[in-house]
Nucleic acid binder design. Structure first.
Lengths: 135, 135
DNA sequence: TAAAATAACTTGCATTACGAAAGTGATTTT
DNA sequence: AAAATCACTTTCGTAATGCAAGTTATTTTA
């Protein structure tokens, strides 16, 4: 896979160069909800990512230090993926995406419930959630 | 262009179905900084979007009510694009992207200056900036 | 302990999207 | 009246996507 050079110095452009596609943020979403995922876990998500696309995105995200690979404690056949601090710091973006989507789409009830908490104290939620992911 | 059906009920997935690509958020960025843009204005941005891609993205964003077309007051040959309220409400996401990028990339000095203000009072900044865009 | 299953990918191939360049038609300027 | 501008559209080569099947290493089952 060719390394795409950055299109400009704009922070938005630089960010999109890494995770600006239809799949990367879903991988990151999975890692925020589950903390650690195997390759197979990602495949179970409802959007149904193809195996080759998943492998390609995991590689790009790893190259950009958004995620990292770990040995699975129980089995040499499995691999664990988790967010780095850089990846965890995407949480505020993820939260705002959820809030925007809640305003303009109909979203699942369990998500709505969680967002109720978020709106009560956004900074507090981010801090607590981040702390949980970091540990 | 085929209308892509949504991949799941996840708010993140639904959002990415609309603007999850390398260009859409750059168009939105341009509209946030300039308030109104012509087709030619978008082409002037440093990332260098191709004309056919621009036309395609503008159409998708318009279909999804993120932007709208206006008649140009000075000329029948020109078209003005601006954000709808739904598009303006992407501002918090845009702000968080900028903050994340500032932390992990080196970004232009003028952007850094603006982000200093943001960090002083995020909610206040969003409110004021939104008000400016809405008017 | 040999065979089947699981896990994490990789490969092949058809379809779709992207990107660069040139072209079109409606205005607008010279 | 001719040239330029504006907002696209078209063409076409290349790259990315998506589906299915295949591969290799490791585990589990019979």
């Amino acid at each position: 896979m060719a390394k795409s050079k950055k299109r400009s110095d704009c922070p938005v452009s630089c960010s999109l160069d890494i995770w600006g596609d239809k799949w990367s943020l879903l991988i990151i979403r999975d890692l925020m909800t589950a903390k650690q995922c195997t390759y197979g876990d990602f495949l179970k998500s409802p959007e149904g990512i193809a195996t080759n696309i998943l492998a390609s995105r995991l590689q790009t995200l790893e190259e950009n230090k958004i995620i990292e690979k770990l040995d699975h404690p129980d089995s040499k056949a499995k691999v664990l993926y988790k967010l780095t601090r850089k990846g965890i710091d995407l949480l505020p973006i993820m939260v705002e995406i959820n809030l925007w989507a809640e305003k303009y789409f109909s979203i699942p009830d369990d998500r709505k419930q969680q967002l109720k908490e978020v709106k009560k104290d956004k900074a507090g939620f981010i801090k607590a959630f981040t702390k949980n992911l970091v540990s």
